[in-house]
C-alpha cells in the first residue's frame, strides 16, 4: 500500500502556500524560455549531427563537421567573420573611448548634444543603414566615388570588386562612432571621483599620466563589457552582408551567419547549417570567456 503520510501532505501544502505566488510570477516567462530557447538550443545540437533536408532526416554523426572542416567556403566565411569582428571590436572600443574622453571636459548640454548625435544612427535598423551604404558605395552616382573624383582618384568598385568588398563593409561599420560605447564610457568616466585627478595633479602628473594611470585602469570593467558585447555583435554580422552583397562577389564577403542562412534557407541543408551555428556559438562563448579571463579586473573603487 502506498499511503501518503499526513506529514508529507502537510509539508507539501505548506510549501505550496508559501511559494505558489513566486512560481505564478515566473511561470509565463519560464514556459516561454523553455519552449523557445532551451528546447531549440537542445535541438540545435541534435540537428547538427543529422542530415536534415526538406524531406529527410538521418543521423550522420560528425559528417557535417567533417564537411565544414574541409570546406574552403566555410574557411573563407570563418576568416571573413574574424576579420570583420576584429576591426569592429578594436575600432569601436578605441573610438568610443577617445570620443568619451574628449567630451568629458565640456558642459552638460554639449555632452548631451554629442551623445545624442552619436547615438542617433544606432536607433534605426541595420537594414536601413545598409541600404544607404549601398547607395553611398554605388560606383557611378554614389557619394563616395563622387568625393574621390573631386580628389582626382579614379572610381572604386566598392562592393563589386572581390578584393575590396569586405573592406567596404568594414569601412561602413567603423566610420560611424558607436553611440552605445560613447554613452557607456561617458557614464563610467563621470563615476570616477575627481579627488583622484586632484591628487595626481598635486603630485605633478601631467594629462597623459592621469589618463594612463587613473582613467584607463578604472575604466577596465567598462572596456571589458564593451569588448564582449562588440565581439558578440561582430561575429553575428548578417544584415549588412545580406543587403549589400548577399555574400558575393564570388563569396568574398561570405560570413558565418550569411552562410548559415544560405545553407538552411536556400540549399535546405538544415543539419549542416546547424553545425555552422554551433561553431559560431562555440567561438562566441570561447571569446567571451577568454576576454573575461584576460581583461577581468582586480581594481575596486
Amino acid at each position: 500500500m502506498n499511503a501518503v503520510s499526513p506529514a508529507l501532505v502537510q509539508r507539501a501544502t505548506l510549501f505550496w502556500n508559501r511559494h505558489k505566488w513566486s512560481y505564478f510570477f515566473v511561470l509565463p516567462s519560464t514556459l516561454l524560455f523553455i519552449l523557445f530557447i532551451v528546447y531549440p538550443l537542445f535541438q540545435a545540437f541534435l540537428l547538427s549531427f543529422q542530415d536534415v533536408g526538406l524531406r529527410r532526416a538521418e543521423w550522420v554523426g560528425l559528417k557535417n563537421f567533417e564537411f565544414l572542416f574541409n570546406s574552403t567556403l566555410f574557411h573563407k566565411s570563418l576568416l571573413n567573420t574574424f576579420v570583420y569582428a576584429f576591426f569592429v571590436v578594436v575600432s569601436w572600443t578605441t573610438s568610443s573611448l577617445v570620443v568619451a574622453v574628449l567630451l568629458q571636459p565640456f558642459s552638460n548640454w554639449v555632452r548631451a548634444v554629442f551623445r545624442g548625435a552619436f547615438y542617433l544612427p544606432y536607433v534605426s535598423s541595420v537594414v536601413v543603414i545598409s541600404l544607404v551604404w549601398l547607395w553611398i558605395f554605388q560606383p557611378d552616382f554614389g557619394f563616395l566615388n563622387y568625393i574621390l573624383g573631386l580628389l582626382g582618384i579614379p572610381r572604386v568598385l566598392w562592393l563589386q570588386d572581390p578584393n575590396i568588398a569586405l573592406w567596404s563593409i568594414v569601412l561602413s561599420t567603423i566610420v560611424i562612432i558607436p553611440g552605445t560605447g560613447v554613452v557607456i564610457y561617458s557614464a563610467a568616466l563621470g563615476a570616477i571621483p575627481t579627488e583622484y585627478y586632484d591628487a595626481a595633479e598635486v603630485e605633478g602628473a601631467n594629462a597623459f599620466h592621469r589618463l594612463r594611470f587613473i582613467t584607463f585602469p578604472l575604466l577596465k570593467p567598462t572596456t571589458l563589457y564593451l569588448v564582449v558585447i562588440y565581439t558578440i555583435a561582430g561575429f553575428q554580422i548578417f544584415e549588412r552582408v545580406y543587403v549589400m552583397t548577399g555574400g558575393g562577389p564570388v563569396n568574398s564577403t561570405m560570413t558565418l551567419v550569411q552562410l548559415i542562412y544560405r545553407t538552411a534557407f536556400s540549399d535546405f541543408n538544415y543539419g549542416r547549417a546547424s553545425a555552422i551555428a554551433l561553431v559560431l556559438f562555440a567561438i562566441i562563448a570561447l571569446f567571451s570567456f577568454l576576454q573575461f579571463r584576460v581583461l577581468s579586473s582586480d581594481y575596486e573603487y
Binding site: F33, I37, L41, A44, I232, V257, A264, A277
Partner: peptide, 21 residues
C-alpha cells in the same frame, strides 16, 4: 543564472530549430 546565460546565446544558434518548431 539560466537567464543570464541565455543572454549569451546568439539568436542564430536557435534559428533553425525554432523555424522547425
Amino acid at each position: 543564472w539560466l537567464i543570464l546565460a541565455a543572454i549569451m546565446i546568439p539568436p542564430q544558434v536557435t534559428l533553425i530549430p525554432l523555424f522547425f518548431l
